[in-house]
Computed example of a mutant assay.
Amino acid sequence: MTSRRCPAWVPLAVLLLTVGQLAVAEWVPGIDRFADKAFGARLVAYPLLMLLAPTLWWLLVGRRDRFAPPPYGAFTLVALPFLVDVTGNSLDLYDAVVWWDDLNHFANWLLLCAGIGLLVCRRVQPGWAVVLLVTGLGAALAVGWELGEWFTFIRHGTELDTAYEDTLGDEALGTLGALVAGFAVRRALRGSVLRA
């Protein structure tokens, strides 16, 4: 049986598509949907966050074992939420589709936490510990993300009146996405743990 692996160009394409849209949002004038959404900060932060997983993997695994195949699929899963977020802004989906933000918090945390789980949970046993670890990491990241949104957009913005309810909903949806990711990672790793 042959093993299917994600090719290296896939996470690179996700990175380039994200950076390209961020560059348009920051430097092309006159696009109202990009106004007051901190695209200058995102242009710096998103690529750095997208490159964090491959960098840490290389420092912790790749340098010690030059023959270890890089987990490009996991890198792609970690990077995809940033592309989805930027694309949602580029297509004006946050304003045009009422439920888009809620779907993003669930789906993006599912993708992000599945990628992180595949990177960090290979040796975690028993299976329920994988689910708890991925869910806990996702919940912590959801709280961190909402703190970042509050600091960047809400504290001096126009959304202060509805921020509390939105924040709680976003954190709950992110944690639910992380829980689903935990079960998916447990299932994905079950076969590799049994064969190891």
Rank of each mutant, 00 (worst) to 15 (best):
72 Y>S: 01
76 T>Y: 08
26 E>L: 15
133 L>P: 03
136 G>C: 06
57 W>S: 00
106 F>W: 05
98 V>G: 04
55 T>G: 13
96 A>Q: 15
90 S>A: 15
184 A>E: 01
64 R>N: 03
169 G>H: 11
89 N>K: 12
92 D>S: 15
194 L>C: 09
177 G>N: 07
143 V>E: 01
80 L>V: 05
140 A>P: 03
103 L>C: 09
69 P>G: 07
103 L>Y: 04
94 Y>I: 11
127 G>K: 08
96 A>C: 04
71 P>D: 02
81 P>R: 04
153 F>N: 08
57 W>H: 11
1 M>H: 12
177 G>L: 03
75 F>S: 01
41 A>R: 10
172 A>S: 12
115 G>D: 07
71 P>A: 05
47 P>Q: 06
5 R>E: 12
99 W>A: 13
54 P>L: 02
85 D>T: 12
8 A>P: 09
146 E>I: 08
72 Y>C: 01
97 V>H: 09
17 L>C: 12
77 L>Q: 09
9 W>S: 10
145 W>D: 01
15 L>G: 00
130 V>M: 05
135 T>Y: 00
10 V>L: 13
57 W>I: 12
13 A>C: 11
88 G>F: 10
87 T>E: 09
172 A>E: 02
155 R>S: 06
146 E>K: 13
56 L>A: 14
194 L>S: 13
104 N>D: 05
39 F>V: 07
173 L>R: 00
86 V>N: 02
157 G>C: 08
188 A>F: 13
59 L>H: 08
122 R>N: 07
67 F>T: 15
101 D>P: 12
145 W>S: 01
11 P>Y: 06
63 R>F: 04
194 L>P: 02
